[in-house]
Design a protein around this nucleic acid. Structure first.
Lengths: 205, 205
DNA sequence: GCAGTGACGATATTGTTAAGTCGTCACCAA
DNA sequence: TTGGTGACGACTTAACAATATCGTCACTGC
């Protein structure tokens, strides 16, 4: 039986292990309640009923635990986005809903789980693996949307695919980056609609 | 004779005053060399040969001095951009060169005057007046470019002007925001070309 | 081999104290 | 009135010592 894929960097030891799951759950609760900085590894150990040394058999560092929680948050966001991509509507419609969904997911994290939002900010600004994986997944989804639209005849094909994808990825930044999103929460609805509209107009055959 | 317009917030006393000019020059040199935080008002006073109390007759706070220097930096950037806008070429050509020029100006500041770059970062992230003025100037230039292109028949007119301008302003963010620009200096040429291309395709009649 | 830990070195953080900095007040000289 | 300042209160920062935290080592029990 193959090992389960690890969702984040810095993990070691057996992938499918009851203690690992317990550590992640304890970390999730503590980070939501107290924040990453205010939570010590000793706090997690105590909550589970084991030693800090044993926690380090599963995670190479406290940051690795943070990565795991951060990966879960970002995975929730990409899951919402993949649900939109999987809907049986036109590529244009899915792209049009992608922008506000992305921004809304980030805004939800900001308003409802501020301390987890702070971990995501750290992951993105300090280039944690979870942050770079998230960016790669967004790129992958963008590319899939553009290819699907081209194959359906909805989008133009003249411009090189890489150039189009690079440009669209850049337009996502203001809504994907947690710190930038923080600064524009009051205009995000109009901004995402305007940018999605602009991108769609640029893709017309 | 009317008073000279003040370039930044937080200034007081006579606008055209030798001491004010001296303070600004001393601040410019010190901020370039030591940075904003490392420079004290006492440093500036000593360099000019007057007291800190007298400096506060011209500036309401140390931040106000920082605003003045920051406004000069950002004014240099907008001057470069306005030079592009003033050229006798098509609106499309000017818009195409606007993006790389914006990013290049920011990159120049980052590489050549790192400590002034840091002040600009503070101005933008802490919503100093200089930062918000800069953003307003960028918006104004974008609007002018779009209107000029529409009047010349180069750009489509069907989409509401405000929506188009809002979207284009959003696409500028990754290149205009000093912290975001810091993170993408190695791909900025390709990124600005791709985004400018996308915006231009969206504007075709 | 798996599950687990106490002790400990290295480093970071916290709290306290002293020093530095910001910005104002009340004043002076010409 | 203009040009200018020393003194000072309020606040921030730096230095330092004590304490806390991170992460590893060498070990134990089953």
């Amino acid at each position: 039986m193959t090992a389960l894929p690890r969702p984040a960097a810095g993990q070691r030891g057996p992938a499918d292990h009851e203690r690992r799951a317990q550590i992640v759950e304890a970390a999730d609760q503590h980070f939501r309640h107290y924040g990453f900085q205010k939570t010590t590894v000793a706090d997690l150990a105590k909550a589970i009923g084991l030693s800090t040394a044993y926690i380090y058999k599963f995670f190479s560092s406290k940051q690795a635990i943070g990565e795991a929680i951060c990966a879960r948050c970002l995975s929730e966001i990409t899951t919402r986005l993949r649900a939109i991509m999987a809907e049986p509507t036109s590529a244009a419609d899915r792209l049009r809903r992608f922008y506000p969904a992305l921004a809304q997911a980030g805004a939800d994290l900001f308003f409802q789980e501020r301390r987890l939002h702070d971990i995501v900010v750290t992951a993105v600004t300090e280039n944690w693996h979870a942050g770079t994986t998230y960016e790669a997944e967004l790129r992958d989804m963008v590319r899939t949307l553009v290819i699907t639209g081209r194959e359906a005849g909805e989008f133009e094909r003249e411009t090189p695919l890489d150039e189009v994808c690079l440009a669209i990825e850049e337009t996502l930044w203001p809504f994907a980056h947690p710190l930038m999103l923080e600064e524009k929460l009051d205009t995000v609805d109009a901004a995402t609609a305007a940018v999605a509209g602009l991108v769609l107009r640029s893709l017309r055959p």
